[in-house]
């Protein structure tokens, strides 16, 4: 019985289909659970899906390496999906034109501070250079952040962990702070979500409205480009 199961598992994991099925199932289950629990901000679908998948992958004996290899068939689509963000960006261009000044003023400062605040605190707490360089691109969208972390000599896995935590926190904090500062403009909320919370923030912004989503894509894209160009030249550790 055990042998048959092991054989089945090795057949299933030979191709990518098992990983794809598990990921799709976790995604759908996470969306269902998320709606069921009245959309808790601190527990976005991506976190629910990842927890479910991590449990299944660890308990079933598939192993993360096997899973990841199969799931690559899905993750390669991140490239064209990033390109796809250009379409809402174009469709919302009239909003962006209207707000070009605050965007231009805020972006360099806020994108720099997004890295500097966390790095400063970590440095004061005595973090090692490895941890610092892994956290530096914490507000940048995953494919760019991985590149930056490698360039600075950080750990890509730790960077992804930092990205996850940052994305979830940014979604929660933008909600709190916008209410506190009495900001109701979807454009500002969206921009702050994308700038601080990269793709997780952008997924959240598209839940608010298409305008918030477009501004979030803009914030994410600009922060990514700005940080990728700026950070490797100024990182002191």
């Amino acid at each position: 019985m055990n042998n048959a199961f092991a054989e089945l598992l090795s057949v299933w994991t030979a191709g990518p289909m098992l990983s794809i099925a598990l990921t799709l199932a976790a995604f759908l289950a996470a969306n269902w659970l998320f709606a069921r629990f009245r959309r808790p901000l601190w527990m976005p679908p991506v976190l629910i899906a990842a927890l479910l998948l991590a449990a299944v992958v660890a308990l079933s004996g598939i192993g993360f390496e096997e899973y990841e290899q199969g799931a690559r068939w899905l993750t390669v689509l991140l490239g064209p999906a990033t390109v796809a963000l250009g379409v809402p960006l174009y469709q919302q261009m009239h909003h962006i034109r209207a707000l070009w000044k605050p965007i231009l003023v805020t972006l360099p400062l806020a994108a720099t501070l997004a890295a500097v605040y966390a790095l400063g605190i970590a440095w004061l707490m005595g973090a090692s250079p490895l941890v610092l360089s892994s956290l530096a691109p914490k507000s940048v969208t995953a494919p760019i952040a991985m590149g930056i972390a490698e360039q600075l000599g950080g750990s890509v896995s730790l960077t992804l962990g930092g990205l996850l935590i940052t994305g979830v926190l940014a979604s929660v904090f933008v909600d709190w702070c916008a209410r506190w500062l009495n900001i109701k403009d979807d454009r500002i909320i969206g921009f702050a979500l994308g700038l601080n919370g990269h793709a997780i923030g952008t997924a959240r912004a598209f839940e608010i409205s298409p305008t918030a989503g477009a501004f979030s894509s803009l914030g994410m894209g600009l922060t990514g480009v700005f940080t990728a160009l700026f950070l490797p030249f100024t990182f002191p550790f």
Binding site: A118, T166, L169, F173
Partner: peptide
Amino acid sequence: TVIVALIAGTLLSVLTTLWLMKKV
């Protein structure tokens, strides 16, 4: 360290972004 830095850092940078956008 990672979690404290991320919580405090993200809160500060979210506040800065929203405040700056609003002011400008």
